[in-house]
Design a protein around this nucleic acid. Sequence first.
DNA 1: GAATAACCTATTGACTTACTATGAAAAGTA
DNA 2: TACTTTTCATAGTAAGTCAATAGGTTATTC
Lengths: 149, 149
Amino acid sequence: MKISSKVECGIIALVDICVNAPTENVVKVVNISQRQSISAKYLEQILPLLRHAGIIRSVKGAKGGYTLSRSASKITLAEIIDALDSSVLGQVSFEEKWDPLVTEALDDTLWSRMSALLRDHAHKISLSDLAGKYNGLVEDSISEPMYYI
Amino acid sequence: MKISSKVECGIIALVDICVNAPTENVVKVVNISQRQSISAKYLEQILPLLRHAGIIRSVKGAKGGYTLSRSASKITLAEIIDALDSSVLGQVSFEEKWDPLVTEALDDTLWSRMSALLRDHAHKISLSDLAGKYNGLVEDSISEPMYYI
DNA sequence: GAATAACCTATTGACTTACTATGAAAAGTA
DNA sequence: TACTTTTCATAGTAAGTCAATAGGTTATTC
């Protein structure tokens, strides 16, 4: 599987928002950019995709920023990925140039089934699952160096 | 899911070889090209991938062509796809620029599991499954017009 | 009205994809 | 041997996609 940078950055940014919204009220692009080493300009292009999909909400102007539009446990990975790049979980279809009967048969066994597998799996994972993992390891990464002092 | 033309053409060509090898002894690129409307030159680039993977065998020179290197029921879809484009079922990994601890956590939940789902599924399907579907529909498409006479 | 921060659109450079073209090498046929 | 057929190998190219940057606009706070 190949995953685009847009999807990767989008997921990481979203996890960052999820983790930091409680303490920062709204999360600014600049902060995500610094914490996650993603260009702010690039984020400005990616976050609107999540907003249009109703996953995050934005506040414009000074003191503005982003928050989740609902609880992280109610946001599925499938939804996130779809918002960022609909082709990842979307159905593949064979090109038109081939005999429709043949491609229909193959399609059913091959790509439709595969897309469905991915989608089903992504539907079972929530943003809070992802953020939980992230949080766990952030704590680890902070405490671990202590052992070496 | 996005699937490249190379993978599509490769699978269709392979099914063609599987179906026609019994009657043609060895299957020539020109014949596949005509039946499946794929440029012969393009096929000449794709079929060697399947040959290097040990899926088909070739006979050079006049009266040459391609055959399967073993029974179609012993050739898995996973093998075929890997031969044509290893990135489809291969593991995605997050880019290096991010905190390895974070990406490791997300990676595990996200892409590794997804790649594994695809691979497991593709491993359960054999070329004979695909060719069977194809054959069934080819028969249908031949007999169906008869109803309208 | 000055500062802040999201929003929107266009553009660029690098990379990938889907072919096409050219010719070599091998094997059968006469 | 000469000729034809067929795979094999590599190079090239045109179009498209992707990642990222840039410039300017709009909305909100103070």
